[in-house]
Design a protein around this nucleic acid. Structure first.
Length: 297
DNA sequence: AGTGGGACCTGTCCGC
DNA sequence: TGCGGACAGGTCCCAC
């Protein structure tokens, strides 16, 4: 569940349990996910407290007292679930949760919450494109994961002007430009398709065509910036998109997938007011692009 | 320098 | 029912 709105939804779901909790133990069930776990992963976490849980782009960042930051990326199929010991039962008596295949439970954080209760946060990832790392707080910004990350689309930096600066003279298609995490960080296949549809822009159009010869944003560039933000905010409000039964941290499902205008709607009617078009699917950079060739130019 | 294409994994769905 | 192929929300690496 891994574009920005899904990661933000996960952060919101985990924070009440994770923040302030003491990590009493960690089960690390294999040596690697996408990458090997860092040296002494369990030892550097056990006995430590989580002081804050934040997000940058599609990364979750758990601040650990002592100076490490636990960096977590969900890849394509990563998810977390939270289990609390029922207050009225003995500590450690957790409700059974069969919603995931336990053979893909790769990491379990055993926690003691500030109120003295016990909880577990379990990371499940069938495809293992996700990863976890531990990085010193002071090294975080220069680390390879973050050094070249582009602007945060929900921050104040995303605007027609900043898009114009990033897109100027670029011949690359808008779809590829928006998927490039070095330009704007956090968009993925779904929300790029949706934001381009909202703006009436063809995914094939060259990014540089949104910039005037003097480097100013065109009207479309400003609209695109607004629509990227609006699309992400709408999705966060809906609890993200739940595809293929991916559940949120509390087991509930996001519902933004019901609001898709183009993603996974090949052959269906375009939802633009007054547009008679049909949604097409094409492949760009080896990924599916969904768009309406009538109203996206 | 900047791009497209393949690779990394497992699961699921669809057509034969 | 079984099997092969296509496809899936991401990103790194490597040829052009």
């Amino acid at each position: 569940m891994p574009e920005l709105p899904e990661v933000e939804t996960v952060r919101t779901g985990l924070a009440p349990t994770f923040e302030g909790a003491l990590i009493t133990a960690v089960d690390q069930n294999r040596a690697d996910l996408r990458f090997p776990f860092p040296e002494n992963f369990v030892g550097r976490l056990a006995g430590r407290k989580v002081t804050a849980l934040s997000r940058r782009s599609k990364y979750l960042l758990a601040d650990i007292d002592g100076g490490d930051v636990l960096v977590m990326h969900l890849g394509m199929s990563g998810s977390f679930r939270v289990q609390h010991a029922a207050a009225e039962t003995l500590p450690g008596n957790f409700a059974l949760d069969r919603s995931k295949d336990p053979k893909h439970d790769h990491v379990v954080f055993h926690l003691q919450t500030p109120d003295g209760g016990a909880a577990r946060i379990i990371y499940n990832d069938p495809r293992r494109f996700g990863f976890m790392d531990l990085i010193g707080r002071a090294q975080l910004a220069e680390h390879a994961y973050f050094r070249e990350l582009g602007l945060e689309p929900l921050g104040n930096d995303l605007s027609g002007e900043t898009l114009a600066r990033l897109f100027r003279d670029r011949k690359t298609p808008l779809k590829a430009a928006l998927l490039n995490q070095k330009l704007v960080a956090g968009l993925g296949n779904i929300y790029v398709c949706e934001a381009l549809w909202r703006t009436g822009l063809s995914p094939m159009r060259a990014a540089g065509t949104l910039v005037t010869p003097t480097g100013k944003p065109t009207r479309k560039a400003s609209d695109l910036a607004d629509n990227i933000r609006a699309t992400l905010q709408d999705a966060i409000k809906a609890g993200g998109s739940s595809l293929r039964d991916h559940t949120q941290a509390d087991g509930s499902l996001g519902y933004f997938q019901h609001s898709f205008a183009v993603y996974d709607r090949e052959g269906h009617a375009c939802r633009t007011e007054g547009c008679a078009g049909t949604i097409s699917r094409v492949v760009q950079s080896n990924r599916s692009t969904f768009y309406c060739s009538l109203c996206q130019r």
